[in-house]
Amino acid sequence: MATITASQQRALDMNVITRKQRSLWMDAADRLRRNKAAMAGLFVILGFALVAIFADLRVGPLHIQLAPYDPTCYFYLNGHTACGGDVVGARSGPPTANPFWGANADPRFLLGTDQIGRDILSRLMFSARISMVIGFVPVVLYFLIGGTIGLAAGYYGGWIDNLLMRFTDIVYAFPDLLLLIIIMATIRNTWIGDIMGGLFLMFIALSIVNWVGMARLVRGQVLSLREKEFVEAARSIGAGPVRIMTRHLLPNSLAPVIVSMAFSVPLAIFAEASLSFLGIGIKPPTPSWGVMINEGFVVFTGTPSMVLLPAACIALVMLAFTFLGDGLRDALDPRMKL
């Protein structure tokens, strides 16, 4: 009976072929890779990210500049160039150059210039920087603030939960946009508003408004996970609260958190654009899509491209993130419905 049977041989063969470990994250990555829309979204986002990074990158001797010009330089019709001047606000009037399909096109400026002679293409590219940063940084902040509060509230329960969640409810009860506008409008003109061209204040304002959703999400996850047997098992072997929270609760609540973060990114970008459009966001001359729409708005009837181009960028990024978010949701948990 020493001979090996066919089925044993099969088992042995399989042993060799399939000896590859798979975590749930890897499974999810596989599912994501098969989702065409999500991958398209990811490519668009990567494209914008690359443009943002390489718009003007100096690392030591290395200097890559994708943007044709400095976005704050003025190109006068007479060929004269002025850079670094701080011209606040835009004077109305026709642009010096139209986009390449327009009547008054200038081959130097592919997408034309704005009414004070700044290159639109360069401005769009530098705006991508602001949008990418404003998209990702606050979302990480939401996660840190909301995640910690949600985790603590969910795990400890009782009066800690009560205190934290009632506070959360109070913040949640304010209308988002109104709160944002109030914060921006009141603090924008102080010294805080000047840090990083207003970016820092935007981070703070967005975080104050939006951590709440994350806290509630994480708390909900933790509440349901807390009763799971594997958490009980961890307690029964003598694991402490920190270990239980970081090794057991957090990793298992991450899937919906990641999805929620993916959906938060475009919302943050959109909020920045809205605030900048209202003139209480990023401080000019730093270009941002919202600022550009604001500036182009005055000459919309004459040169709609000045509004439509940045608007198209915003729409494209939003759409890309939505596709990616949907893909992530399906990949991370095929059964989860948000």
Binding site: M1, Q8, A11, M14, N15, T18, R19
Partner: peptide, 20 residues
């Protein structure tokens, strides 16, 4: 039945690839 076969089956299960 056969004790050897029983041992073989046990062994096989312990070594079975999880995918299977």
């Amino acid at each position: 039945g056969s004790i050897e076969v029983l041992e073989q089956v046990k062994q096989q299960v312990a070594e079975l690839p999880p995918e299977a």
